[in-house]
Simulated scan of single mutants.
Amino acid sequence: MSKSYNPAAVWKPFGAFSMVKIHEGGQLVHLKGQVSLDREGQIVGKGDMRAQVRQTLENIKAVLAAIGGEMADIVSLTQYTTDIERFMASGDIRKEFFSEPYP
């Protein structure tokens, strides 16, 4: 059996999904894709990719913390972008949340 969680530290789901689902035995965790919304569901950093990356990673960190996890537990991370230059310019922010070996 799986357990679903919607931590109060991040925005409330607005659709038919949970923020995180833990597979039986607690070995495999699936996180809902995160975006740059604050706890009230308001966009953070509109037009500012660096602010959006930071908020998104803070959301992921908060969801993991709510179930006893940490950023180092992440095996794979997918970031979608429409501007590769801005993506490359936000690499230092990702390094604040992850260390080698990176997910």
Rank of each mutant, 00 (worst) to 15 (best):
Q55M: 08
V35Y: 04
R54I: 06
N6Y: 02
G47K: 05
K3I: 09
N6E: 09
L31N: 07
E58R: 12
V29C: 07
K21Y: 04
V63W: 01
G15P: 00
A51E: 15
L64S: 10
F14Q: 13
Q52P: 08
L31R: 04
Q55W: 02
S36R: 00
P7F: 01
G25V: 09
K61V: 01
V63K: 00
Y5T: 09
S18K: 09
I22K: 10
A62Y: 01
D38A: 05
Q55L: 06
A16L: 08
Q27Y: 06
G25H: 13
G47V: 10
F17R: 12
S4M: 07
V20D: 03
L64Y: 07
R54A: 11
A9V: 03
R54H: 07
A16C: 07
S18Y: 12
E24Y: 07
G26E: 04
M19E: 06
R54V: 05
Q34A: 14
I22S: 11
A65Y: 10
L37R: 02
D38T: 10
S18Q: 12
G33I: 05
S2K: 11
V63M: 03
L31G: 10
S18D: 15
T56P: 05
Y5A: 12
N6P: 03
D38L: 01
S4W: 08
I22H: 02
H30L: 05
E24M: 08
I60A: 12
A9M: 11
A8I: 11
R39M: 08
A16H: 12
K12E: 14
K21T: 15
A51T: 04
F14A: 15
V29E: 04
G33K: 11
I60D: 03
G33M: 11
K3T: 09
V10A: 01
S4Q: 10
L31Y: 07
D38Y: 01
Q52C: 11
G33L: 07
I60N: 01
K32D: 11
A16F: 03
W11H: 11
E40F: 04
I60F: 01
T56Y: 01
L57F: 15
A51Q: 12
G25F: 07
V35N: 05
I43A: 09
K12G: 02
E40H: 05
L31A: 09
H23E: 14
K21H: 07
A62K: 03
F14E: 14
Q42I: 07
V53E: 01
K12T: 13
Q27S: 10
G15Y: 08
S36A: 14
G33W: 10
K12Y: 05
V29P: 01
K12D: 11
H23I: 04
G15H: 04
Q52Y: 02
I43M: 13
V20N: 01
Q42L: 05
H23C: 05
K3D: 08
W11D: 12
Q52T: 03
K61C: 11
Y5Q: 06
